[in-house]
C-alpha cells in the first residue's frame, strides 16, 4: 500500500523535474530578445487598437516607435500630444506636436432639404449602394445615409440621426482615429483641426455640379457662386469644380463667409449666438453719420483755410499797393 503511494509520488515528482529542466533549456535556447522599451511604450499607448496610427494595433505601433530612428512622422491620434510626449520622454526621441483634429461631416443633405427621387430596396450598406448607383437622391456626392461610418466607429462617437438620415459626430468622443474617413465610399468625412472651444467653419457640401443642378438636388448645396471666396479676407477659400473649400490653416474664423453664403452650405460650430441684426444695422448707420459729419468738418476746415489764404492774399496785395 505504502509502496504504491510512494512510487506514484516519486514518479510524478520526477516527471515534473524532467519537464521543468526541458522547459528551462528550451526557454534559454530559443529565447527571443525583445526590447523592454516596447512593453513600456505599449503601456502608455491607449490600447484601443483602432489602427488610427497606421499600424494594425497598439503593440505593433509601439514596436514601430521603438524601432525607428525618427518618430516625428508617427502619431497616435487617440492619445494625442500628451501620450506622444510621454513616449518621447521614454525613448529619448523627438516628437512633433500636432494640432488635435476631429471628424466633421461635409454634407447637410437631410431628408427635408434633399428630396429622395428613387427608392432602394437592397442591402443597406453604403458600400453596396455606392457600387450599384448614385444613391436615393439626385446628388451623387452626398451622404448615402446607410451608416457604414457609424458601424465602424469603435468609440461610440457617431450615431444616425433618424430625423435627417445623416450621421452625427459627437465631437467630445471622437478620437480622430480616421476609421470613418476610410470607410465612407463618398469621402464625406474629413479630419479638421479642433481648437479649445471646438470652433470650426467648413463647407458642408461636396457637390461639384453647376449651381442649378446642385440646388435642384439639394437646398443646402454649394452652388459655386464664389461669394465666400471673394469676401474672405485671408484667402482661405478656394473654388474648384464649382465647390468651395476652406483651408483650416488659413481660416481665422471670422465668419464672413457664413453670412454671405446664399444656400447656407457653410457650417459654423459652437460659436456663440450672433447679436440680433437690428443692432448691427444701427451701428452701421451711426458710423455712416459720424463719417458724414467728419467729412463735412474736414470740408469746412478746408474752406476756412482757403478763405484765410484769400484774406491773407488780399491783405498782401493791399499792403503792396500801399507801398
Amino acid at each position: 500500500m505504502t509502496d504504491s503511494v510512494l512510487y506514484s509520488v516519486l514518479l510524478l515528482a520526477s516527471l515534473g523535474i524532467i519537464a521543468a529542466v526541458v522547459l528551462y533549456v528550451v526557454s534559454k535556447k530559443f529565447y527571443v530578445y525583445e526590447n523592454p522599451l516596447i512593453a513600456d511604450v505599449d503601456e502608455i499607448l491607449p490600447g484601443a487598437n483602432c489602427a488610427g496610427c497606421g499600424s494594425p494595433g497598439c503593440k505593433s505601433f509601439a514596436e514601430r516607435l521603438v524601432g525607428s530612428e525618427d518618430i516625428s512622422d508617427l502619431f497616435c491620434p487617440v492619445g494625442g500630444n500628451d501620450v506622444m510626449k510621454e513616449v518621447a520622454a521614454i525613448l529619448g526621441k523627438e516628437v512633433v506636436e500636432r494640432d488635435p483634429t476631429v471628424a466633421v461631416l461635409r454634407c447637410q443633405g437631410g431628408c427635408d432639404v434633399r428630396p429622395k427621387t428613387t427608392e432602394y430596396q437592397g442591402p443597406r450598406t453604403c458600400a453596396i449602394s455606392a457600387m450599384i448607383y448614385s444613391g436615393e437622391t439626385d446628388c451623387q456626392y452626398g451622404c448615402l445615409g446607410d451608416g457604414d461610418c457609424v458601424k465602424v466607429c469603435q468609440f461610440d462617437a457617431m450615431y444616425m440621426d433618424e430625423a435627417t438620415g445623416l450621421p452625427v459626430i459627437i465631437t467630445d468622443k471622437c478620437t480622430s482615429c480616421g476609421a470613418c474617413v476610410e470607410e465612407c465610399p463618398r469621402d464625406i468625412i474629413e479630419m479638421r483641426p479642433k481648437n479649445k472651444r471646438d470652433l470650426k467653419i467648413f463647407v458642408g457640401c461636396l457637390n461639384e455640379d453647376k449651381g442649378g443642378i446642385a440646388k435642384k438636388a439639394c437646398d443646402v448645396a454649394c452652388i459655386g457662386c464664389s461669394k465666400c471666396e471673394d469676401i474672405c479676407p485671408k484667402d482661405a477659400i478656394t473654388m474648384e469644380n464649382q465647390l468651395a473649400y476652406i483651408d483650416a490653416g488659413l481660416c481665422t474664423l471670422c465668419r464672413k463667409c457664413v453670412e454671405v453664403c446664399p444656400t447656407h452650405s457653410i457650417i459654423e460650430t459652437n460659436f456663440p449666438p450672433k447679436k440680433p441684426k437690428k443692432v448691427v444695422e444701427k451701428k452701421t448707420v451711426v458710423k455712416k453719420v459720424v463719417k458724414k459729419v467728419e467729412v463735412e468738418k474736414v470740408e469746412a476746415e478746408k474752406v476756412a483755410v482757403v478763405k484765410k489764404e484769400a484774406v491773407v492774399k488780399v491783405e498782401l496785395e493791399k499792403s503792396k499797393k500801399d507801398a
Binding site: G122, P123, I128
Partner: peptide
C-alpha cells in the same frame, strides 16, 4: 436573401 448584391460587392 440579397445573395447577388453581396456577391457582386465581394467581386468588386
Amino acid at each position: 436573401r440579397p445573395l447577388l448584391d453581396y456577391i457582386r460587392y465581394g467581386k468588386n
